Amino acid sequence: MKDDQMLLDSLLQEEEDLQFSQFTHNTAVLIGMKIVEKALKDNSPMVISIQKNGQQLFYSKLDGATMDNDLWIKRKNKVVEHFNHSSYYMNVLFKTTQTTIESYFLDRKDFGVEPGAFPIIVKDVGIIGTITVSGVPGEGEDHKIITAVLKEMLQ
């Protein structure tokens, strides 16, 4: 339980630290391409999606990714849009509180409470979109590839 709380605190701190002063279409392309570079280097089959205010700014599907990954992208995005936190944060929070998406009267088929969707947060504005990855095996690895790229760019 203490480890879970430390992870939750760490995930919240990432959301605080990884904020943009501005976020343009070009920013989305730069982030997306960096994620693609990492994925190609690791030979990871994944889908990468970056959306701002409901508009698709970047999308890439690498070899081995499937239509299921596209569905996971949509479902993970809905978690960020509804709860205003990364889908990984909500995943850990639900596990530690023994809560489910149904506890919020939401449907599991529409909301994917799994790591891999990170909010695009602009300082003094708030959440304006999502950076989402699906297809990287391992607990939290989808999330980690996003935050690694953001740390490179923002810190």
Rank of each mutant, 00 (worst) to 15 (best):
I48R: 10
S87I: 04
V92N: 04
E81T: 09
S134M: 05
L71A: 14
F118K: 06
I101S: 11
S60I: 08
T96E: 11
I101K: 04
G116K: 07
L57C: 00
E102R: 02
V79C: 10
I101E: 08
A117L: 03
N77S: 10
H82N: 12
Q55F: 11
S60C: 14
H85L: 06
V80Q: 05
K52H: 07
Q51C: 08
M46Y: 05
V79F: 10
M67H: 12
V80G: 02
I127T: 08
P45N: 07
I48E: 09
G64N: 13
F118A: 03
A117H: 09
G54L: 00
F94M: 10
K123M: 03
S49V: 01
L93M: 12
F94A: 13
H82I: 00
Q98T: 13
M67A: 15
V113N: 04
L62M: 14
T100A: 14
D124G: 02
L62N: 15
N77D: 14
K78Y: 10
K109Q: 11
D63P: 11
G129D: 01
K41A: 10
I121F: 04
Q55D: 12
F118P: 01
H82S: 14
Q51S: 09
D107S: 14
E114V: 06
A65M: 07
T96S: 15
F111E: 02
N77F: 14
W72C: 10
P45R: 05
E102W: 03
K95T: 09
G64A: 08
F58G: 01
S86A: 09
V113R: 01
P45S: 14
G64S: 10
A117E: 05
R108N: 14
N43V: 09
D42C: 07
N91W: 02
P45F: 06
N84K: 15
Y104N: 06
M90C: 07
E114L: 10
V133E: 05
I48D: 12
S86C: 13
E81F: 15
Y59H: 13
G116Q: 09
K76R: 08
S60M: 11
R108C: 14
N43M: 04
T97L: 13
A65H: 11
T66Q: 00
A65Q: 07
Y89K: 03
N69Q: 07
L71T: 14
G126C: 00
S103F: 08
F58L: 00
K123H: 07
D107P: 09
S49F: 09
I128L: 02
D68G: 15
V125Y: 02
I127H: 06
D70C: 09
Y88G: 07
G64Y: 10
V47P: 06
W72K: 08
W72H: 09
F94L: 05
Y59P: 01
I128K: 00
T96W: 01
K76Q: 11
D68A: 15
S44C: 07
S103K: 08
K74Y: 13
N91V: 00
K109M: 02
